[in-house]
């Protein structure tokens, strides 16, 4: 499959200014902007990095460049959410979609391991799509856990947090220039393991209509906090209550920007 990706990248490089992908060097693999003349033998797919975020960074820097990105399913979902929020220009981006293997999907509890490229013109899909993996068992059993136990569980987890802000920095859909997590009004600076997890509650609430389930936050967390359990739960809620699935449709606007006339919800409070 990797040779197929390299061939496709070589073919696309003739039309594009550059393609964002992982390059393996003797130090390890890291995101890189491949351009014509680069050795494509160095292009790899693992380990995972948020290439969508890199693509957005480069698009903002090079305003006329037409770029490409080698993207997995989660990267494409992130690109969709970023495009809705003006972080990426879909007209200047060509996606080379790569399907994940079923093992990778299982590891990520990914419901949609194959990128959905219907809305990306000029894009190609490489690899055979595999079916989605079952959701995280903790998320499925969560309703049976009493509140006191939930608090005890998260208290233990959040105590480990040493506020590296890594989950925010790596997140492809976290891009605000003024971040609420840096505001001393909401998150007290200089206080580790605070009694009340302001940081994580705010992060989770901001993830509700954005989280595409790429699990980058969990992989970047030095304290191994199972953050995506929380984000998966809020994501489920958004699907149930508002009927919005982040990363699904590039033309569907984020629900909090819409009125009830444009996107109705079912609630006792709406009459």
């Amino acid at each position: 499959m990797i040779t197929e990706i390299r061939d496709k990248v070589a073919e696309q490089l003739e039309k594009l200014d550059g393609i964002v992908a992982l390059r393996s060097t003797e130090d390890g693999a890291a995101p890189y902007l491949f351009q014509q003349g680069d050795n494509l033998e160095e292009l790899v797919m693992n380990p995972r990095y948020p290439l969508s975020k890199t693509a957005s960074k480069l698009q903002k820097r090079f305003k006329d460049a037409k770029l490409g990105v080698v993207a997995r399913g989660c990267d494409v979902r992130a690109l969709v959410e970023m495009a809705k929020r003006n972080q990426i220009d879909p007209d200047r981006l060509v996606v080379i979609g790569v399907t994940c293997t079923s093992e990778e999907a299982e590891f990520c509890f990914c419901a949609e391991p194959a990128p959905n490229l219907d809305q990306w013109s000029g894009s190609t899909l490489i690899g055979e799509p595999v079916p989605g993996a079952p959701p995280n068992p903790i998320v499925a059993e969560y309703a049976q856990i009493p509140y006191a136990e939930r608090w005890a569980f998260w208290k233990a987890q959040f105590t480990k947090c040493h506020k590296c802000f890594g989950c925010r920095d790596i997140c492809p859909v976290c891009f605000c220039e003024a971040c609420a997590l840096e505001d001393p009004l909401w998150v007290e600076p200089g206080l580790l393991a605070p009694d009340f997890p302001m940081y994580h509650l705010i992060k989770a609430q901001h993830m509700t209509t954005r989280c595409v389930g790429c699990r980058q936050c969990e992989m970047a967390c030095p304290a191994d906090i199972p953050l995506t359990v929380l984000y998966d739960l809020v994501r489920q809620d958004v699907a149930e209550l508002i009927g919005y699935v982040p990363g699904a449709d590039i033309n569907e606007m984020p629900p909090f920007t819409l009125t009830l006339a444009d996107a109705a919800i079912e609630s006792d409070l709406v009459y």
């Binding site: 136990e149 609430q205 509700t208 809020v234």
Partner: peptide
């Protein structure tokens, strides 16, 4: 005109989130 349309979408999500971390 329609600012509370956001409220009615945002608050139920927040209420559930409180439950998820263990606040009734």
């Amino acid at each position: 005109i329609n600012a509370n349309h956001r409220t009615v979408k945002r608050m139920p999500l927040l209420k559930n989130l409180l439950g998820y971390v263990g606040i009734n």
